[in-house]
Design a protein around this nucleic acid. Structure first.
Length: 594
RNA sequence: GGCUCGGUAGCUCAGCUGGAUAGAGCAUCAGCCUUCUAAGCUGAGGGUCAUUGGUUCGAAUCCAAUCCGAGUCACCA
């Protein structure tokens, strides 16, 4: 149990004993003591005044006294300032914690709890390459999956590939018309980029055709519908649905180019999936559910044959679930896939990492599932994240302001190489080690930058800031780790000393480290309940900062005494382990040297 | 227009289940490398927590209204 929980429990028991009333955690607050006061944790007394009818000072006095008398293994001293009861935690408690855990690489992680969770993320379209927004999605999804694992869940990482539809046909048409049989190989281009080029080409041609038609006197709406290339694309979609062989062949060929490209990107950023769903396989799912929903009167049919659900009682609108021509809409397959996932894996929770532009859609989806009394309806969780914007405003593919994923990653790696070379600390590194290091630093910077912000918030991507190596960055944390490992290599020759040789009083900076380390398990838990990796990023940054102050102020190798040296080495190793563990929860590796 | 989300230092962000003088990083300025990695450390300046009212012993945090910004409300996906 964490010291905070121990404190809460002890305080509740003490209050009950003192005042013969029952109390709960909500009756008072526990905070970490501010640095300017004596003590480690603080109980706030004000909220107890009303029911106990004593002054906050009096309550604090009595409670403090009772705590150090009856829980002396945890608390050794107290002081009261106004209504704040500051408690000092026993050094023996910290020592014990340190000795038990400093070597453990799994510190803070929980045992398997028997529950299965699915995290769906990435979910790209196969008509263009991945961009910065996808990166936020992928890093988030991957990290949340790791955080869930650390909390004892079995996690299935999944991906739904949007591999069919009118947007896919657009790049197919353009390739057919304008590529002269070119392939990624012949063009020397990465498959997804290659296909993306034809998607852009489609839009160029389409715009021209629309403009010509407008010039010829058509209205804009008419022109957009009648542009020949658009008509051909629509025909191609019909042909695809009919399974026309040459269309299917082309579709497969081009999608495979894209998959090859995606795989390269996924591999370079460390993304992986346990299960990939393809829209071309799932888009018909859900149709029978619609039929059953009709029978249950959850849905109703309009005169033209289209099928709807009325959500106006829930404050939403009516929503179509099947077109008048009998084909399904986007949400239909989502209903089907949601049920399919549940039946296939019997998952406890189904997490969808999807941008907040789809908040409404996801709300409707879950509501429909609930109305259909689907067993998993309550366990769907939309991990909604904010858009990534540029300092110049939003990314717009039409205006060419989209930051390409591969480009930005390569740039990060190149910049980390340049910066590392300038610092000149890696002269004795082997070629392989250097390549690995640049990747570690560049990708680490990128991931940390995107994960350090609360997922639900829109974030601004500032290129200069993202490639920074100072302050609140991945490299700062990596550097701290490398520094610790360097000293450990030099100083730890034998096993560290047994417990009884430990000194009794921690210095302020030593204490700060052990307090921060003690909080790690609670942080992992918090990140999990909030589905929020930024909790980890903030934590590990603070831990690193604390360590760096400690490192600058106190000598480890030349400590005042051998026992102090042992203590500091343990604190260092403990910190290193936690850094490595935290960073791994964000998919960031840490270098032994840098 | 309806619904949802947001507004904290010049910039990027923490803090939001109410608690002590609102915190980091970047940027600016001043210091610290003959001793464990200076990708570091120490210090300084910088705030009407959008505005107004309310609840409370106590409000950046809760409630209401207003202003500003974003998203969304398709027989698109």
């Amino acid at each position: 149990m964490s010291i905070v929980n121990t404190l809460k429990k002890s305080a509740i028991e003490s209050l009950t004993a003192l005042y013969a009333q029952s109390f709960t955690e909500k009756d008072f607050q526990v905070n970490q003591t501010k640095p300017e006061f004596e003590g480690d944790y603080t109980l706030v007394m004000f909220s107890l005044v009303k029911s106990l009818k004593f002054s906050p000072e009096t309550i604090g006095q009595q409670l403090g006294e009772h705590l150090i008398k009856n829980y002396s293994q945890f608390f050794t001293a107290y002081n009261i300032i106004k209504g704040f009861l500051n408690l000092t935690v026993a050094d023996s408690y910290w020592q014990d914690l340190l000795n038990k855990n400093y070597k453990k690489s799994c510190y803070g992680k929980k045992e398997f709890n028997g529950k299965k969770v699915m995290v769906e993320y990435a979910s790209p379209n196969t008509n263009k390459p991945l961009h910065l927004g996808h990166l936020r999605n992928i890093f988030l999804g991957w990290s949340v999956a790791e955080i869930l694992k650390a909390n004892g869940y079995e996690v299935i990482k999944s991906c739904i590939v949007n591999d069919r539809g009118i947007h896919i046909c657009k790049s197919m048409i353009a390739w057919q018309r304008f590529a002269n049989g070119a392939t990624p190989e012949s063009a020397g281009s990465k498959g997804d980029h290659f296909v993306g080029k034809y998607y852009v080409k489609f839009n160029d041609v389409y715009r021209e055709q629309v403009a010509d038609l407008v010039k010829a006197g058509k209205s804009k709406d008419e022109a957009e519908k009648e542009a020949p290339i658009m008509k051909d694309t629509q025909q191609m979609l019909v042909d695809w649905e009919d399974g026309k062989p040459e269309v299917i062949t082309l579709w497969k060929k081009m999608n495979n180019w894209v998959y090859k490209g995606f795989d390269v990107t996924y591999k370079s950023i460390g993304a992986d999936f346990d299960k990939t769903y393809y829209e071309s396989n799932t888009y018909l799912l859900g149709k029978d559910i619609v039929q059953k929903g009709m029978d249950k009167k959850v849905f109703y049919k309009k005169d033209d044959g289209s099928i709807w659900i009325d959500l106006t009682n829930e404050g939403l609108d009516e929503k179509i679930v099947q077109r008048s021509d009998g084909t399904s809409v986007y949400i239909t397959q989502d209903i089907g896939l949601a049920l399919h996932k549940y039946e296939q894996y019997k998952i406890e929770q189904s997490i969808y990492v999807i941008g907040n532009e789809q908040n409404y859609h996801m709300k409707v989806l879950q509501l429909i599932c609930k109305k259909l009394l689907m067993p998993n309806a309550d366990n769907m969780y939309h991990l909604s994240y904010g858009m990534v914007e540029l300092t110049s405003g939003k990314m717009k593919s039409r205006e060419g302001t989209v930051v390409d994923a591969d480009d930005i990653i390569n740039e990060m790696i190149a910049t980390s190489q340049q910066h590392t070379e300038e610092l000149g600390k890696v002269k004795d590194f082997m070629e392989d080690e250097l390549t690995e290091l640049y990747k570690t630093i560049g990708l680490g910077a990128m991931k940390f930058y995107l994960l350090r912000v609360d997922p639900k918030k829109t974030m601004i991507f500032n290129p200069a800031e993202s490639i920074d190596f100072h302050g609140f960055t991945g490299s700062f944390v990596q550097y701290t780790y490398a520094r610790i490992k360097s000293i450990l290599r030099k100083q730890i020759t034998n096993d560290l000393m047994p417990n009884d040789l430990m000194p009794n009083d921690f210095l302020k900076l030593e204490k700060e480290i052990i307090i921060a380390a003690e909080q790690y398990p609670a942080i992992i838990e918090q990140a999990c309940t909030e589905h929020n990796p930024s909790v980890i990023a903030n934590y590990v940054f603070n831990l690193s900062k604390t360590f760096n102050s400690f490192y600058a102020e106190l000598s480890i190798a030349n400590a005042e005494s051998e026992s102090k040296k042992q203590l500091r080495l343990k604190l260092s190793l403990f910190t290193a382990n936690i850094i490595k563990s935290s960073m791994s929860l964000m998919g960031i590796s840490v270098p032994e040297r840098m």
